[in-house]
Amino acid sequence: MDVTNENKIPDPFPGTIHQTPGGGILVSKMDQVINWARSNSLWPLVFGTSCCAIEMMSTASAKYDWSRFGFEVARATPRQADVIIIAGTIVNKMAPVLKRLYDQMAEPKYVVAMGACATSGGPFFYNTYSVVKGADHIIPVDVYIAGCPPRPEALIHALITLQEKIKSGMTREQMKMEKPEQSF
């Protein structure tokens, strides 16, 4: 029997099953398996700078329970974390700390900007002497969430969006290689 599309497992695992007597052989690409594994065990960094962190804690606890999607193990050290959720306002004094935390995270690493402050400065966009107007001034952001603060469903949606981004298979560097002449 050949490997056919009829036997393909659509979701969540990438690959196809080659049926054999007494079982089967799974055929897949190593890159896809790695991406699948990465996307389903994203360990967030414990990082919250204001009220969005309350929503993030709610998302982590029993009612919303983001561990259903693989974000169970929030790490208190950037060395062990895969994704940093910027939950709150970033002020100028915090900016170098955030940069250092991002630099200390091991590749591959992902960033979610949660809420209006992390996206654009939010309510502090005008007339402030201390707030960074969006965390993307400091580190690259993969997924933005609107809201002030966003509901836990919105955070879970953003994290699932991040999973889909990872499963789609290209890192930021690879995307740059694919489109070298893209100009901003």
């Binding site: 100028n92 654009s120 005008y126 007339n127 002497y129 201390s130």
Partner: peptide, 29 residues
Amino acid sequence: NMDSLEGWPLRKEFPLEDPFRKDKDDAMF
């Protein structure tokens, strides 16, 4: 505040930023 901040931000004469600033233009990002 960060050490490099110049001035005293809660004094009434401290200038808040220009509302017509251009550095948050989408084209920059």
